[in-house]
Design a binder for these strands. Structure first.
Length: 713
DNA sequence: CCGGAACGCC
C-alpha cells in the first residue's frame, strides 16, 4: 500500500464512514486521520464515536491521538475524560495530557503528581516542563531540571537542548544558553533560531545575534522565516542599517521577501534606522498585510498616522490596542484635538477603553491638549489603576503647572501602588517648579526613593538634583550629584544649571571643564547655563567665546533662549549696540524676554534713545504688561525727565495697567503649605510677632554692620 | 502512526 498523506487519510476515512466500508481501517489510519483534523473538532468527534463503536479505542495509539485532538481544539476536559478511563496509560498519554493543560500552574502540579506516581520522565516530558516553567517557577527550578536532564543522559536530545537554550535566554543567562548550544551533538534549525532570538531579546547581545546568524549562513544551515525575523530584529535593535539591507536582500533571494512576519519586522527595522522610505517600500510590496503591518506603519510616522488608520479600515483589517497606542501618540504629538476626540469615541464604541494601554495614551493625550478634566475623567473610569496610569496623570498635572494636584495625586498613587522611576520624575519636577510646596515633600520623596532603591536610576537622580537646585538647596544638589554612580549628560547639565541658578560662576566653569574632560558632550541646555553664569558675572568675552564654540565645535543651533542670554550679557556690560545687533540675528525675530533684557540694560546704562525704541516694540507686543512702563519711567526718572515720568504713570492709569504684586514665600517645613507675604500685607495671623522678629533681626544686622565698619577702619 | 522546541508590532 502506498503511503498516504494525512489529509488524504482523512478524506479516505470520511468516504469509508459514508459508505460503510470498514474492512481496511486500522489504528494507524485513525491516528493519521486524527492528526489531519488539526484542531477541527467536528470530524474529530465523528472519529471518536467510530473508535468507540468499533472497539479501536482500546489501542493506546488511538486514545492518545484522540486526547491530542481534543487538547488542540481547546476541549481539554474531554481529553482528560479519556485519560481517566485508560487502564494502562503510556508515557505518550501522560505527556499529551501534561502538554494540554490550559494553565501552566496546573501543568506543573500534574508533573509533580506524575513523579509521585512513579512515571519515569522521558525527553519529551522534560521539554514540556521546561516550556511550562518559563514564566511559572524561578531560575533555580530550571537549574534543577537541567541537572536531572544531565543525570538521566537526556541532554543530547535536540528538543531538550532547544528548550534549555530558550530557558536560559529567557532568564538573561546568555552565556549558559550558549554553552548548551555549543555542547549539542545534533543542532537543528530551531537550535540556531533559539540561540539567535535569545541574543536578540536580551538588550546587550545584538551583535552576538548578528554574528550567530552569519555563522548559521556560513555553516549552510537552512534559513526560515524565524531565522530572518530574529536576525532582522537584531539589526533594528543595533540600528545597523547596512546589515539590515543585506539580510533583506537574502530574504528576497531565499523567497522570504514577501513573508508576512518577515515583512513586518523589516518595516520596523527600517523605521528604527530612520530609513522611512525603505520601510514604505517594504510595506507597499507586501502581498498580505495584517494588523501588525499597519500598526508598525501608523506608529512610525505621525504625519500620516490618521490617514493610514483610515486606509487600514478600508483594507478591512481590524485594529488592536497597540494600534491605538501608536495612533493616539501621533495625534498627541501633532496636536490633533478633533481627531483625538473622534478616536476616543471610536474606542468607547468598540470597547477598547477597557484596555489600560489605550486609556493611558488617552490620559497623556488630553494632558498634552491641556484639558486635565478630560484626562482625569478617563483615569477615573479605569477599572484597574496601574502605576503607568497614575504616572500619566501625575506628569499631566506637572506639565500643566498644576503642581499641587500633581503632588496630591502622587500621594494617592503611592498609597495605592508602588511608584517607579517615572512617577518620581514627574512629582519631583512638580515640586521643583512649585513655589508653594514645602521642600519637606521633596525630602520625603528622596527618602522614599532610597527605600525603593531607585536612587541609582539616572533619570531619578537627575530629577532629584534638579528639584533641589530649583528650590535653592545647592548642598543637597551637590550631594545627589556626588552620589550618582554613572553621571549622564543629564546629570552634568543638571548640576551645572544648579550652580548657574545659584549665581556661582566659578563652580559652573569648574564643572563644565570637568564635564568636557570626562568626555561628556554638553547640549544646548548646558550652554544656556554656562552662558547665563558668564553673563551674570560680566565675563562677556568668555561668554562670546563659548557661544562661538557651541556653534562651531558642537554644532548646536542656538535657540531664541541662547540669543536672549547673549543679549542680556552684552546689555549688562553696556555693549548695547552689539546686543541690539545680535538680537536682530535671532531666529524668529526678537522675542519678549530679549527685549525686556535690553530695556533693562538701557535703564542701567541710561540710553534713553534705544530704550524708547525697545519699549515701543515691547508695548506693541504686550500693551498691558506693567514691566516696560516701570522700566521706562525709572529710566526717565534717573535722567530727571519728570514730565515724561508723569506721562507714563498717567498712561498706565488710563489703560488700567496694574503693577503686579510681588509675593515672597517662606518655607518653615510645614507639610500643608507655605506662608506667602507681599509688601504691606497684614493678613497673617501672627503678623505682630513676625514684625517684632523682623525688627529684631534688622537691628542685629545693623549692629553687626557697624561693628565691621569699626574694625575695618 | 500518538506527545515536545524557535520569531514579529507600542
Amino acid at each position: 500500500m502506498r503511503k498516504k498523506s494525512p489529509s488524504q487519510s482523512l478524506e479516505i476515512f470520511r468516504r469509508h464512514l459514508q459508505l460503510g466500508f470498514l474492512y481496511d481501517i486500522d489504528e494507524v489510519t485513525i491516528a493519521i486521520a486524527l492528526k489531519a483534523c488539526s484542531g477541527d473538532q467536528k470530524p474529530g468527534c465523528q472519529i471518536h464515536g467510530f473508535s468507540i463503536t468499533s472497539g479501536f479505542i482500546s489501542y493506546i495509539t488511538v486514545s492518545n491521538s484522540l486526547m491530542n485532538m481534543y487538547c488542540k481544539s481547546g476541549q481539554f476536559d474531554r481529553a482528560l475524560c479519556i485519560f481517566n478511563n485508560l487502564s494502562n496509560p503510556d508515557i505518550v498519554s501522560w505527556n499529551t495530557i501534561l502538554s494540554g493543560f490550559p494553565k501552566n500552574e496546573d501543568a506543573l502540579q500534574f508533573a509533580l503528581r506524575m513523579n509521585l506516581y512513579g512515571v519515569v520522565f522521558d525527553a519529551v516530558t522534560y521539554t514540556i516542563i521546561l516550556a511550562v516553567c518559563l514564566d511559572q517557577r524561578g531560575f533555580l527550578f530550571g537549574l534543577q531540571l537541567h541537572s536531572l536532564i544531565v543525570k538521566f543522559g537526556l541532554d543530547s536530545d535536540t528538543f531538550v537542548g532547544n528548550a534549555l537554550i530558550t530557558l536560559y535566554s529567557r532568564w538573561g543567562h546568555l552565556v549558559e544558553a550558549r554553552s548548551v548550544f555549543d555542547a549539542m551533538p545534533n543542532k537543528d534549525l530551531v537550535s540556531w533560531n533559539a540561540m539567535i532570538s535569545g541574543y536578540t531579546q536580551e538588550g546587550n547581545y545584538g551583535l552576538e545575534a548578528i554574528w550567530a546568524f552569519i555563522d548559521m549562513v556560513r555553516e549552510g544551515i537552512r534559513l526560515d522565516h524565524v531565522s530572518f525575523t530574529s536576525a532582522v530584529s537584531a539589526c533594528g535593535h543595533e540600528r545597523n542599517l547596512q546589515l539590515g539591507r543585506q539580510i533583506h536582500g537574502l530574504t528576497i533571494k531565499t523567497g522570504y521577501g514577501t513573508h508576512l512576519s518577515v515583512g513586518n519586522v523589516l518595516i520596523s527595522t527600517y523605521s528604527k534606522c530612520e530609513a522611512i522610505e525603505d520601510a514604505k517600500l517594504v510595506f507597499d510590496g507586501m502581498d498580505e498585510r495584517n494588523v501588525v503591518s499597519w500598526t508598525t506603519m501608523i506608529s512610525m510616522n505621525d504625519a500620516d498616522a490618521v490617514f493610514l488608520f483610515g486606509e487600514m479600515r478600508i483594507d478591512g483589517v481590524d485594529p488592536n490596542d497597540v494600534t491605538f497606542v501608536g495612533l493616539l501618540h501621533a495625534i498627541t504629538v501633532r496636536h490633533l484635538a478633533k481627531e483625538g476626540q473622534m478616536i476616543h469615541g471610536f474606542c468607547i464604541k468598540t470597547g477598547f477603553v477597557l484596555e489600560s494601554s489605550v486609556c493611558n495614551s488617552l490620559i497623556t493625550m488630553y494632558a498634552k491638549f491641556q484639558s486635565m478634566q478630560d484626562s482625569k475623567k478617563v483615569f477615573e473610569e479605569l477599572n484597574y489603576r496601574e502605576i503607568i496610569s497614575w504616572n500619566a496623570l501625575i506628569s499631566g498635572y506637572a506639565q500643566n503647572g498644576l503642581c499641587q494636584a500633581a503632588l496630591s495625586t502622587f500621594l494617592l498613587a503611592s498609597s495605592e501602588s508602588k511608584p517607579n522611576q517615572y512617577t518620581f520624575g514627574s512629582v519631583l519636577s512638580a515640586i521643583g517648579s512649585a513655589e508653594d510646596i514645602s521642600l519637606k515633600h521633596g525630602q520625603r520623596c528622596h527618602s522614599h526613593i532610597i527605600k525603593l532603591g531607585l536612587n541609582t536610576d539616572p533619570v531619578v537622580s537627575g530629577a532629584l538634583l534638579d528639584m533641589y537646585a530649583k528650590r535653592g538647596s545647592i548642598y543637597e544638589s551637590q550631594r545627589v550629584f556626588s552620589e550618582t554612580p554613572e553621571k549622564s549628560q543629564f546629570a552634568w547639565t543638571a548640576i551645572i544649571s544648579a550652580y548657574a541658578r545659584h549665581g556661582d560662576y566659578e563652580s559652573v566653569m569648574n564643572w563644565f571643564k570637568k564635564m568636557e574632560e570626562e568626555g561628556v558632550r554638553p547640549d544646548s541646555i548646558t550652554f544656556l547655563s554656562v552662558l547665563t553664569a558668564s553673563g551674570r558675572k560680566g565675563m562677556v568675552d568668555i561668554g562670546l567665546q563659548l557661544f562661538d564654540s557651541m556653534v562651531k565645535d558642537y554644532e548646536i543651533e542656538p535657540s531664541p533662549e541662547h540669543y536672549s542670554c547673549m543679549v542680556d550679557m552684552l546689555g549688562r556690560a553696556g555693549r548695547l549696540k552689539e546686543a541690539e545687533e545680535l538680537m536682530g540675528r535671532s531666529p524668529g525675530g526678537p522675542g519678549m524676554s530679549m527685549l525686556q533684557s535690553l530695556l533693562g540694560a538701557c535703564r542701567i546704562h541710561g540710553n534713553v534713545e534705544m530704550g524708547e525704541r525697545v519699549a515701543d516694540v515691547l508695548l506693541g507686543m504686550e500693551p498691558m504688561g506693567s514691566g516696560s512702563y516701570v522700566l521706562m519711567s525709572n529710566l526717565y526718572a534717573e535722567k530727571g525727565d519728570w514730565e515724561k515720568v508723569a506721562k507714563i504713570r498717567k498712561g498706565m492709569r488710563e489703560k488700567g495697567v496694574k503693577k503686579e504684586v510681588g509675593f515672597s514665600w517662606v518655607d518653615v517645613g510645614d507639610i500643608d503649605g507655605l506662608h506667602g507675604f507681599s509688601s504691606g500685607d497684614k493678613s497673617h495671623p501672627r503678623y505682630e510677632e513676625i514684625c517684632r522678629m523682623a525688627e529684631s533681626l534688622g537691628s542685629e544686622m545693623k549692629y553687626l554692620r557697624e561693628k565691621n565698619r569699626a574694625y575695618s577702619k
